[in-house]
Design a protein around this nucleic acid. Structure first.
Lengths: 190, 190
DNA sequence: GTCTATAGGAAGATAGAC
DNA sequence: GTCTATCTTCCTATAGAC
């Protein structure tokens, strides 16, 4: 077989992910992505013949898979709702590095090309997250309508806090948002 | 005096604003901005010698001024809190075109250059909006700590709903967010 | 104040050696 | 699988006529 890969597929994807999350799609130039990966541009094209758009798609798909396993599956799993929510919030805290890492769903939604190319998966992910939140809220005793509303509020708080943290630099806002999400899903303060 | 301007200063700023809000800073190329303005690139440089960065700064400042007059001033004005909140939410609904127009504070926070250049004003705007929300929440009878938290939640819901609308295409989420913000600020559901 | 034309550079992408 | 070198296109920005 040929020469070994200079960098593991998973590690490569992780580094590209970080870059896209930090600067967004348009500002993530191939030079920047190559530097982050520790590879030259031509090597990136060997792994992703479709170029930057394919990289972003792969990154988005990978994030979707992670969210699936670490958050959605937990929310829809067995056990008391309080426990499921706590576990999912822990996963989200890790997923967003305590609020310091932006959400791809927001960062990849900008730009002309980007918008059209990534919108389907972005829409799907918002939908799946909202459904899972609603599911656990219903299991926690909230009515159908209330549960759906609590779920949408949870997604808003999650996304909004990430935007706020990025704008203010105060990552404690993210922790506060997680607490609000917990209250919303478990139907406290009604 | 010389030849008349092909386009009014206010109208020019409005068109640049729309472009930045739609595609973000990096994707807003001078060609795109020039087309939106109905001018050639060289003409844009005549109005904004500092180039794209100066355009974005002007757009951001203009948005800050609008928010000041139409929202912050109203929130901190006279009259019953319910009325002030209602008026401010109406202004926000217009400001964000019913959720269909993104927030500059989010769209200009991406990218490397962008980040450093616009961060001061973005931070300030988040701070001012949060303070004004907290002020009206306190006037509505909430305690200092509760009012501050309600204010941060309001900003999160506002920003988060705009992200969600952009990702899902469902602008009714924005209206729902405005209702949640009203409840949060006026201390309902406690 | 607006335009045409163009400079100078960085972007995305490819060819081909090793 | 990774590299150097290169191509082409688009970008930001400027010069100078009208």
């Amino acid at each position: 077989m040929g020469r070994a890969q200079a960098i593991d597929d998973d590690e490569l994807l992780a580094r590209l992910t970080t870059t896209f999350r930090e600067v967004g799609y348009e500002a993530a130039s191939l030079s920047l992505l190559a530097d982050a990966a520790g590879l030259k541009k031509a090597s990136l094209y060997h792994r992703f013949p479709g170029g930057k758009e394919e990289m972003a798609q792969a990154v988005l798909q990978s994030a979707a898979d992670s969210l699936d396993v670490q958050v959605l599956h937990v929310l829809e799993g067995e056990g008391p709702p309080e426990r499921r929510v706590a576990q999912a919030l822990d996963a989200l805290k890790r997923f967003y590095a305590g609020g310091k890492q932006a959400c791809l769903l927001n960062m990849l939604a900008a730009g002309h090309i980007a918008s059209n190319a990534f919108t389907p998966m972005i829409t799907t992910m918002f939908d799946r997250l909202t459904r899972s939140f609603a599911r656990v809220a219903r299991d926690a005793g909230q009515g159908e309508g209330q549960a759906r509303m609590a779920a949408r509020r949870a997604v808003m708080l999650l996304q909004g806090s990430l935007v706020m943290v990025r704008g203010t630099g105060d990552s404690s806002l993210f922790d506060e948002a997680l607490e609000m999400i917990r209250s919303s899903l478990l139907g406290e303060g009604e």
